[in-house]
Nucleic acid binder design. Structure first.
Lengths: 165, 165
DNA sequence: GGGTACATGTAATCAGTTACATGATTTA
DNA sequence: TAAATCATGTAACTGATTACATGTACCC
């Protein structure tokens, strides 16, 4: 089985939580990685199933009631996650910004700017708030760094859209 | 039919070229939008076919030889493209940077930095070269603006990776 | 004449998107 | 007690990825 970023997000969140249901994962994504990498919740049902088939997660299902599924890491799962985290090679992300596509094909940037500026400013404010709460907590270096990068990114976009306004 | 960014890239490139085969599109993507939005070439066979079924492209096929397909815009296709370009509302892009995911889940940023820095510096140099050739040409405002954004983006990433080195 | 790179496509699989559903809790 | 929202899933479709294939042209 080929492991995708989605797989590692699931593995990572399960590791952080110890044990998680798809719904926990949904909440986990929304409150953390989801800021820069969202996953539709249907994938959070499908993906753990795949990972369980591959032996990287252990699945348990409630016998009564709603028969909820919950997952935890197997040894193999932990190894796969750690190998990925430890590997210094990564792919490159693409910009894939729809507004840039429009500009490329002739849109007037000044017309796009107001909506883009509002969106970026809102996210920037959100990030600043989260980071204020997070700083000082123990064991949050990773999340704090990604937030810092998120902030720099929003600032960079804001400068761009201001320039073309 | 729902039109995706892929659809608009195809429509836009066909408009720019007047008429194009899938292979022309492949070259077109590689030399332009591909810098921030790549499309596997198999999609450049599938997507025009869909667009032709939807009446947005007109397909012609060589009778002899390799029976190459070529496409041009229909009136409806041109309208759809212009409506999209003229609409000031766009979705938001996500960062989706694999290296950030790794950091989020505990990777050492200093270990990731060298490869990332090399990649970003190479792209930055490439962009600067293209932009130097492009500036001054007529009717290249769109592409030049996207390149400028690409450059700012690379610079912003380079700052980030230098900071954590 | 043989290798290498460009040109041109097809097919199978799979992940992701979208939509549909419904049970349980809280709140007005 | 009705409405809203949270919790929990499934199913259908379709776009994207990957791999396979082969033809043509040019260069050594």
């Amino acid at each position: 089985m080929r492991l995708s970023p989605t797989s590692y997000i699931v593995l990572g969140l399960v590791r952080n939580a110890g044990r998680a249901t798809p719904y926990d994962l949904k909440a986990g994504v929304a409150g953390s990685v989801g800021n820069f990498w969202t996953i539709p919740h249907s994938q959070l049902y499908a993906e753990p199933e795949r990972l369980a088939r591959a032996g990287l997660l252990h699945e348990e299902r409630e016998t009564g009631g709603r028969r909820r599924r919950s997952y935890e890491l197997t040894a193999a799962g932990r190894e796969a996650l750690e190998a990925w985290v430890g590997d210094p090679v990564t792919e490159s992300a693409e910009l894939r910004e729809p507004a840039l596509l429009k500009i490329f094909f002739g849109a007037d940037p000044a017309a796009l700017a107001p909506a883009r500026l509002a969106a970026h400013r809102a996210r920037l404010a959100g990030y600043r708030e989260i980071v204020a709460h997070l700083e000082g907590q123990p064991a949050t270096e990773g999340p704090v760094l990604t937030l810092r990068r998120g902030i720099a990114n929003e600032e960079s976009w804001i400068r761009f859209w201001e320039d073309v306004s």
